[in-house]
Amino acid sequence: MFIFLLLVSTTAQGLILSGTPQSYAQYSKWYIAINSTLELEFRTRGEDGLLVYMDDGGYYDFLEIKLSGGGLRVRFNQGGGPELFSLGEGLADFNWHKVVEAKITIKK
Results as ranks from 00 to 15, higher is better:
residue 73 R to V: 10
residue 92 A to D: 14
residue 50 L to N: 09
residue 77 N to V: 12
residue 8 V to W: 04
residue 42 F to A: 05
residue 61 D to N: 11
residue 82 P to I: 01
residue 90 G to N: 14
residue 61 D to V: 00
residue 6 L to R: 08
residue 92 A to P: 12
residue 9 S to G: 10
residue 54 M to H: 07
residue 54 M to W: 11
residue 87 L to G: 11
residue 53 Y to E: 09
residue 51 L to P: 05
residue 52 V to T: 02
residue 21 P to S: 10
residue 102 A to E: 03
residue 7 L to D: 06
residue 74 V to D: 02
residue 102 A to G: 09
residue 91 L to G: 07
residue 43 R to H: 11
residue 75 R to W: 03
residue 36 S to P: 05
residue 100 V to W: 04
residue 89 E to V: 07
residue 27 Y to T: 09
residue 39 E to H: 10
residue 29 K to P: 04
residue 19 G to T: 14
residue 77 N to K: 08
residue 98 K to S: 06
residue 72 L to Q: 08
residue 32 I to N: 03
residue 73 R to Y: 01
residue 36 S to R: 03
residue 83 E to R: 13
residue 104 I to T: 04
residue 76 F to N: 03
residue 89 E to I: 00
residue 10 T to D: 11
residue 88 G to L: 04
residue 80 G to V: 04
residue 11 T to F: 03
residue 57 G to R: 05
residue 41 E to H: 08
residue 59 Y to Q: 05
residue 23 S to E: 14
residue 58 G to Q: 07
residue 75 R to N: 07
residue 107 K to W: 01
residue 105 T to G: 03
residue 93 D to V: 11
residue 8 V to T: 12
residue 22 Q to P: 00
residue 92 A to G: 08
residue 24 Y to F: 15
residue 21 P to L: 06
residue 99 V to W: 00
residue 2 F to D: 15
residue 18 S to M: 09
residue 104 I to M: 02
residue 84 L to D: 15
residue 53 Y to N: 01
residue 29 K to Q: 11
residue 85 F to T: 13
residue 99 V to R: 05
residue 79 G to I: 05
residue 40 L to M: 13
residue 23 S to A: 15
residue 5 L to S: 14
residue 1 M to P: 13
residue 68 S to W: 00
residue 46 G to E: 12
residue 49 G to K: 06
residue 74 V to G: 02
residue 38 L to E: 01
residue 62 F to E: 02
residue 51 L to T: 08
residue 34 I to L: 00
residue 63 L to P: 00
residue 84 L to C: 10
residue 59 Y to R: 10
residue 103 K to E: 12
residue 2 F to Q: 14
residue 97 H to G: 04
residue 4 F to S: 15
residue 96 W to I: 12
residue 80 G to A: 12
residue 62 F to D: 00
residue 9 S to W: 01
residue 93 D to Q: 12
residue 44 T to E: 07
residue 102 A to H: 02
residue 29 K to G: 02
residue 35 N to Y: 00
residue 88 G to S: 10
residue 35 N to G: 03
residue 5 L to A: 12
residue 88 G to F: 09
residue 4 F to A: 09
residue 10 T to E: 12
residue 74 V to A: 13
residue 42 F to I: 11
residue 51 L to G: 06
residue 15 L to I: 11
residue 86 S to W: 04
residue 82 P to G: 14
residue 82 P to T: 11
residue 74 V to Q: 05
residue 82 P to Q: 15
residue 96 W to E: 09
residue 41 E to G: 12
residue 15 L to F: 02
residue 101 E to F: 01
residue 56 D to L: 07
residue 56 D to W: 03
residue 51 L to I: 14
residue 11 T to G: 10
residue 19 G to M: 02
residue 25 A to Q: 11
residue 23 S to V: 06
residue 1 M to T: 08
residue 37 T to R: 02
